[in-house]
Amino acid sequence: MIDNKLKTIFATALGIDEAAISDELTYGSIPEWDSTAHMMLVAEIESQYDIMLDTDDIIDMSSPAKAQTIIAKYQD
């Protein structure tokens, strides 16, 4: 499961309740997580974690769990 910091980022960027962030949530599975929201999510993650994601990772970031794994890669 993802940590609270990332959960808050997802909720803020997608404009949804934190309770709605689950393992089943995937890119495009709800109207709020469209391509525009995805780029807002990326901006928020980059800003909060002070990282710059590769384009491949942005495309690959299809769920909160996947996002957590990708972020960990940049924090090594």
Binding site: V42, A43, E46, S47
Partner: peptide, 10 residues
């Protein structure tokens, strides 16, 4: 532009 636009948003 892809990378620059993300840095500019900051």
């Amino acid at each position: 532009s892809q990378y620059a636009s993300r840095l500019m948003q900051r």
